[in-house]
Design a binder for these strands. Structure first.
Length: 504
RNA sequence: GGCCCGUUCGUCUAGGGGUUAGGACGCAUCCCUUUCACGGAUGAAACACGGGUUCGAUUCCCGUACGGGCUACCA
């Protein structure tokens, strides 16, 4: 049977980078194995449902190119792919479990259980305590029937018997053993008639013929329950294999990465920006921060996985080829934003100019800058080795689109000297007559002119740069002049000179 | 508290009974260059601790410490 994996997020808000990494690993594994990548929406918690979250998830997957083969809106023969639309399936399945004595009704209210936990911190609903609680194991059948008929709120719990070792062969961690006596009787069906994660997950994975469950480490403890559920249903022979991924840790300090860490550390932790009801619930995304999707993917792939060689920059195709669950590490990976930006720079350098220009176009448009592709391609060619983020093209290099906003005073003090004034005046006169006004011709003409006047390029060029860009750093002077054109070049040089003169 | 998982430079990691413990990000110095960046060179920087096993442990085993996850009618 072919590999079938699923990414099963819950639409409770924006999905952070940890969730996206899970999607990526599932995707890579599916592609590599010639398998099927499924998106399933786990919207069984009505209270936590957030409108727009599902659309966000889909848009994020599309931006990254992690397109599901099956899922809501993606087709597939195993739907529906939203758990809220599969409610009747779970109802039927859970009745099977009750009928065979693998599950039971429990009438204890959330308040009653809460009170128990308050007085006994170790309280768990399990094989010991259930004998003293209000459920169909302790009540007379007639009483249970009566309550059910009266529509008294109740849940269905999995009946777990003690004295059993549950061995799990995890593809990442190896063998993990749990004792059934330590496990609590998990709720399978909630009082509102919706299934819990545990029930829906197992039923769906079985019905959708999932072969490998690749998910975060936070699920490892409940995997024992899941195995028991497969057994209860009699599905153990076709139970999927498990692979639990290490958590992504916050950049500094302790604990796993959380939504709030984005604001806390001034870094994006989401694929796309998310607009919440308040600023505190709104987050910036990798896309908006100026990351290329393939760089984002590369970064996430390396958070918890590494090939055996020393390479670190990969295309998606290479990741598909090289990925393996066996090489996923067991320990948590700290989110390293510097590394993310470096990786983005590598991918920007590896991307051709016309593609980059397409990415930069909306950014330029948003600022009201000139945004025709031919011009943008020249900008990108000049700057691609000097930027970390796509936004740098219109921010760091704003002077390629609009006049200099401010001159670097420190630079002026170091590079400018009034003795350069006469020769600069002359040069400015000459420049517009260079034909054609391209980098090579301008450079040749300028250097000849400087030699003729016995001036050193090392003295003059930095001043030209200061006038052109307002800064002592930036792209090559002659390339920039050619890009700006003769009129703009002359204008900037004159304005710069005037400014330098009075700043003395 | 209980259960489970983990621990190699600051960070991501390679490695694996005998290695000068390798690479990358970041940092520092130098070279290239009109600047920055790119590129190149160099440097500082790690096997959590204690017991075993062994001729020999960073590597295997057991403890301890530390970190993490789970312990909801959330996923």
């Amino acid at each position: 049977m072919g590999v079938r994996v699923r990414f099963a997020p819950s639409p409770t808000g924006a999905l952070h980078i940890g969730g996206i990494r899970t999607a990526l690993y599932n995707y890579l594994f599916a592609r590599q194995q010639g398998g099927v990548f499924i998106l399933r929406i786990e919207d069984t918690d009505l209270a936590r449902y957030v409108p727009g979250a599902e659309e966000y998830i889909v848009e994020a997957l599309q931006w990254l190119g992690l397109i599901p083969d099956e899922g809501p809106g993606f087709g597939g023969a195993y739907g529906p792919y939203r758990q809220s639309e599969r409610q009747s399936i779970y109802q039927v399945r859970v009745q099977e479990l009750v009928a065979t004595g693998r599950a039971y009704y429990a009438f204890d209210t959330p308040e009653e259980l809460e009170a128990r936990r308050l007085q006994d911190g170790t309280f768990a609903y399990n094989h010991l305590t259930r004998q003293h609680l209000r459920n169909s194991l302790t009540m007379r059948p007639e009483e249970v029937k009566r309550l059910l008929e009266k529509g008294i709120p109740h849940v269905v719990r999995l009946r777990i018997e003690p004295g059993e070792d549950i061995h799990i062969q995890d593809l990442v961690r190896g063998e993990v053993v749990f004792q059934s006596s330590e496990l609590d009787d998990k709720v399978l069906l909630k009082a509102d008639g919706m299934p819990t994660y545990h029930l829906a997950n197992i039923v769906d994975d079985h019905m959708m013929q999932i072969t490998h469950v690749i998910r975060g480490e936070e699920w490892l403890p409940s995997t024992a329950h899941h195995v028991l559920l497969y057994r209860a249903f009699g599905w153990e022979k076709t139970m999927p294999q498990f692979a639990h991924l290490p958590l992504i840790l916050r950049p500094e300090g302790q604990g796993k990465l959380s939504k709030r860490d984005g604001a806390r550390f001034g870094i994006p932790v989401f694929p796309l920006s998310w607009k919440g009801a308040t600023p505190e619930e709104s987050f910036e995304g990798f896309r908006e921060a100026g990351f290329l999707p393939q760089a984002t993917l590369n970064f996430m792939a390396l958070l918890g996985w590494h090939p055996s060689d020393d390479r670190e920059v990969f295309s998606v195709e290479e990741l598909v080829r090289l990925f393996s669950l066996e090489r996923v590490s067991k320990s948590g990976a700290r989110f390293d934003y510097d590394k993310a930006r470096w990786l983005n720079q590598r991918h920007i350098m590896a991307t051709d100019d016309s593609t980059l220009a397409q990415y930069v176009r909306p950014l330029a448009e948003a600022k009201g800058y000139r945004a025709d592709l031919p011009y943008l391609e020249r900008v990108v060619a000049l700057m691609k080795e000097r930027v970390l983020l796509l936004t740098d093209f219109v921010e760091e290099a704003y002077y390629l689109f609009e006049p200099v906003r401010a001159y670097d005073e420190e630079g002026i003090r170091k590079k400018w000297s009034p003795v350069l004034q006469p020769i600069l005046e002359l040069l400015i006169e000459q420049l517009p007559h260079v034909k054609p006004f391209d980098a090579t011709s301008v450079e040749t003409a300028t250097k000849a002119f400087l030699q003729e006047h016995e001036a050193k390029p090392g003295d003059v060029l930095p001043v030209l740069r200061l006038a052109l860009m307002g800064s002592t750093k930036g792209p090559a002077v002659f390339d920039t002049m050619a890009l700006l054109g003769p009129e703009e070049t002359v204008q900037r040089l004159r304005r710069g000179m005037a400014y330098f003169l009075q700043s003395r």
